[in-house]
Simulated assay, not measured.
Amino acid sequence: MTGYLTALIAIIKREALRFIHQRERFVAALVRPLVWLLVFAAGFRAALGLSIIPPYQTYISYETYIVPGLCGMILLFNGMQSSLSLIYDREMGSMKLLLTSPMPRWWLLTCKLLGATAISILQVYAFLMIAALYGIKMPALGYIAVLPALVIAGLMLGALGLLLSSFIKQLENFAGVMNFVIFPMFFLSSALYPLWKMAESSDLLHDICALNPFTHAVELIRFALYGQVNPSALGWTLLAAIAFSGAALWGYSPEGTGIRRKS
């Protein structure tokens, strides 16, 4: 157990040092959601009407509605950003050194995933603090209750990025794949508008949004911020996290596609 713990601490420390040395990464992670919150929300507020839907007990502002979705945005972008660093490490050779260590490969990748998720959660709390200063405050208990939801959602989205990185050969190709995954996942979800609004426009779009794992991650965060549990969102997010993690571990295994390409 000492060896496993040492590997965990070392990898998380490496992720933290990389994050500290890339201050622009922290700023960029906050700029995206803040632009949506402070700029785009002002325009959407007049165009989109909101009804009283769980977990809300009364009418809310549009800015309040999109905060959970923007928390999910931070987790989504950072999950992909962390996977980008994996591809860079693989091209530089440090990834091969990591995977040939005495520790099991699944544990090393899990440590990498945990480290990236921890950093993402810190950025989410920084965003929630700025939102509170802007006047968008959640129940006090919600800031604590949301932590498990952020962990589960962060692991799910980080595992998705890990899966993508196992099948991408070159660093240059990852940007296109990121855009192909990130934007459909974000916009075809309940992050910016409730699902009943999508149903008014198109039943097909509603069904796609309902099947999107990111939708369930956002709803898990939304309910947790109000001290509630959404069993459906929790179940689907956990299921997606397990599926993505299993596929990613297979992709980085000796039998998987990703390792054979770079061996």
Rank of each mutant, 00 (worst) to 15 (best):
Y226E: 02
W36M: 14
N173T: 09
N230Q: 10
L76A: 14
P184C: 10
L5K: 05
C111R: 10
P55W: 01
F187Q: 07
M80C: 03
G258A: 12
H216K: 01
A116T: 03
P55E: 10
S245M: 13
A224T: 05
I20N: 01
L38Q: 08
A224S: 15
M73F: 14
R222N: 00
I152G: 04
S232D: 09
A132W: 07
R105W: 09
I9A: 15
D203Y: 09
Y4W: 08
Q81L: 11
P33Q: 07
S245W: 14
L225Y: 08
Y88W: 11
I9K: 13
P33M: 02
R45F: 05
A241H: 07
M80E: 01
M156T: 13
A28L: 13
G135R: 04
A149S: 14
A240G: 07
F19Y: 15
F77L: 14
D89I: 04
L238Y: 06
L238G: 11
A7S: 06
N230H: 15
M92A: 13
S190P: 04
F183S: 15
A140H: 07
F180C: 10
Y143W: 06
G3W: 08
S201N: 08
Y56P: 03
A46K: 08
R90L: 09
A41I: 04
H216L: 00
L84E: 11
G79A: 10
E63Y: 02
G161I: 09
N78Q: 13
G49Y: 04
A217Y: 00
L239F: 12
S166E: 00
